[in-house]
Amino acid sequence: MYKLIVKNLSKRFGYRKVFSDINFELSIGESIAIIGPNGSGKSTLILTLLGQYRPSKGKVLYLNNNQQELSEENFRSSCALVSPYLQLYSQLTAEENLQFFATLRGLTITGKRIDELLNRVGLEGRGHDLVGEYSSGMTQRLKYALALMSNPDILFLDEPTSNLDDDGKQVVFDIVKEFRTNSIVIIATNERDEYDLAQNQCRLN
């Protein structure tokens, strides 16, 4: 069972404080919504939890079954992110994107599996199209296919339904409901129907 421990986490950019003294713990089967107004540091917190920003103070720990810290390699294969600022290769097709990231993550992915993933997010029959020709909503759906591909233990969702239509939102809600029982789910959002999906809340000001 994985465990995420966030201890006194603070982040500053120069003199500007983004957030300070964030504390929470999550185990598999638990979820948290990070909520707050625009510019309150939700995305910065997500990126800090993902190790893309170095904390100014405090710690982020990911523990495995033996209560030991996850190695970088294990962490990479255990987590997935869906967010508006996560960009895919626009000059590759959806299939090529999935294939490329599968290889990097050390996964074997068949054509059948790719079709399953694309069907799951409502992109059936569009696997051979260049991602650059997708609408923003379709690209967002493809990011979910990419996240589902590795069946992550820790799922990070930043503005999870941005650019999605009602069908797309339902797909996302179904995915979150499925993952929150077997994974750690962290959602950064301002939408009430999205943060209601999580059991816990972390409010940023």
Partner: peptide, 24 residues
């Protein structure tokens, strides 16, 4: 259902990055 993990090593991952860049 999850995609099976492989022991894809440094060479196959490096080659994947190279092949992606060539394609682009």
């Amino acid at each position: 259902m999850t995609s099976p993990k492989t022991n894809a090593g440094l060479i196959s991952k490096s080659f994947a990055v190279f092949a992606k860049d060539i394609r682009l």
